[in-house]
Amino acid sequence: MRFTIQRDKLVEGVQDVMKAVTSRTTIPILTGIKIVASDEGVALTGSDSDISIESFIPKNQGDEVIVEIKQPGAIVLQAKFFSEIVKKLPTDLVEIHVENHLQTVIRSGKSEFNINGLDADEYPHLPQIEEENAFKMPTDLLKAMVRQTVFAVSTSETRPILTGVNWQVENDSLTCIATDSHRLALRKAKIETEGNDQYNVVIPGKSLNELSKILDDQNDLIEIVITENQVLFKAENLLFFSRLLEGNYPDTSRLIPTESKTEVVVGTKEFLQAIDRASLLGEGKNNVVKFSTIDGDFVEISSNSPEIGKVVEEIPSQTKDGEDLKISFSAKFMMDALKTLEGPEIKVNFTGAMRPFIIRPLNDDSILQLILPVRTY
Rank of each mutant, 00 (worst) to 15 (best):
V14E: 08
A337D: 01
N286V: 15
E270Q: 11
K19C: 12
Q198R: 01
T179P: 01
L280K: 04
E313S: 05
D50R: 11
A337E: 01
F271C: 10
G267D: 14
L162G: 04
A144G: 08
L211C: 03
Q71H: 06
Q103Y: 06
S305H: 13
A278S: 09
G13D: 08
R2M: 09
V169I: 11
H182Y: 09
D197N: 14
S279T: 04
N196I: 07
M334S: 11
S302E: 12
G247D: 09
L118K: 09
K206L: 06
K332V: 12
Q369P: 01
L93D: 14
V98T: 10
L102Y: 08
G282I: 01
L30I: 00
K190F: 01
I177Y: 04
L77H: 05
K188S: 14
G117T: 00
Q103M: 02
P72F: 08
F56K: 07
S253E: 13
L281G: 10
T252C: 14
D50F: 06
I327A: 00
G322R: 09
R107F: 09
A134K: 11
L341R: 08
V86P: 00
I177W: 03
E223S: 04
Q198D: 06
S305L: 13
T175A: 12
S47D: 12
L141T: 14
T268P: 02
I315W: 07
T158K: 06
A134P: 00
P204G: 12
S328L: 03
S83H: 04
Q128G: 15
G13Q: 01
Q273I: 07
I27C: 09
F271V: 00
K269V: 08
K261A: 15
Q103T: 05
